[in-house]
Design a protein around this nucleic acid. Sequence first.
DNA 1: GGCCATTGGATACCTTCGCTATCCATGTTA
DNA 2: TAACATGGATAGCGAAGGTATCCAATGGCC
Lengths: 208, 208
Amino acid sequence: MRMSELSRRSGVPVATIKYYLREGLLPAGRQLSATQAEYDEQHLRRLRLVRALIGVRGLPVSTTRELLGALSEYTGDTHRLLGLVLGGIRTSDAAEQGVPEPADVDALVAELDWDVHKAAPARLALAGTLASLRTLGVPLDRHSLLPYARLAQRTAVLDLDQLRGIDDPLETAERALLLTVLLEPALMALRRMAQENESARRHAEAGD
Amino acid sequence: MRMSELSRRSGVPVATIKYYLREGLLPAGRQLSATQAEYDEQHLRRLRLVRALIGVRGLPVSTTRELLGALSEYTGDTHRLLGLVLGGIRTSDAAEQGVPEPADVDALVAELDWDVHKAAPARLALAGTLASLRTLGVPLDRHSLLPYARLAQRTAVLDLDQLRGIDDPLETAERALLLTVLLEPALMALRRMAQENESARRHAEAGD
DNA sequence: GGCCATTGGATACCTTCGCTATCCATGTTA
DNA sequence: TAACATGGATAGCGAAGGTATCCAATGGCC
């Protein structure tokens, strides 16, 4: 298909598609001539994925590019790829440079006996958040963090269960990306509702 | 204290403080004269809170203003306030207008017997995310969402436990805000590490 | 083969957001 | 009283994400 059809079927303006091509979020189409290129269903899938990450979730373009890059580097087995995709996601909001003291995080990972890459961005993100909270007077040490981590582990089991039954490994990775990234606001919304409920419950218990 | 001292003790440039005053994120100081105002410790605390929400977490100014507004509207009991603060947080990234079909969310809340305000933004955020996932071919119905919600409930119990032992209700609410909002990236980082670990575990189990 | 709308590519521009810098009249302080 | 600081108003800046314009090369239709 041509770019105009790609635009029509995806709902994304042609100018925006050109922008994504420029930014390396979408691979170039097959060049038919100097001024003509053809796109296929893969491009359409990729475009929808990009719109989901950027438009729905609000990820910055640079982060999205990194994530998609991890997807393309797929060569070996599915779980290697999943580790790359799931573990390599940069959070992008917390200041991750000048890592304060990842010692707490390392100790936590060791205590849980988790198999997590030593340079995973998530480690830095976690350390950065803990440092911020500490300077704001909310300590939250490794001890009180442990139960949160155990709940995260059970969440991850649910996540991985969602990926069973998909044959194509690339499709598996794409779905993993969607589930990991798009589900985040949903999980946070659930947490907030649960907080509100729990607060009300304790309020009633304390007896107005 | 004067604005310059407020700036020095908080590390926030004077120009930025003026900006926050303009945007209604910081209450005006006590007017001493036409061109002089005095600020106190409350202002300093508030300023640090604002910096945490905007600078560390990356919340947009408008969302921050709403959150702080909820804090100021505090009149009654602590749990009412917590409900307001915890339940009223807008996610700001997902498109929340044109609510697709909150029926699933309503059913979920009913099934869990949660006491959540009917108009809580979290409901809309959740419904919006579910709708996005559905159009992207990742269904995720109420059934598969239920275990996530149960885990969120246990997370909320941990959250509320963190707030015990603080006397001042306003301080409690501020800490609740910090914990709810700043902990979000940390919880997501934990989830990603747990995903990576779980993927590696299943990989090893399947035998290379 | 000739003609004109369409395509892809390059470039410049636009809008929003979160600051930041400049001015200036008023006030404080030594 | 003179020099400097303060608060308020206003304008500008830089990044990010997207949009609009321009243009030569083409493809399709006759």
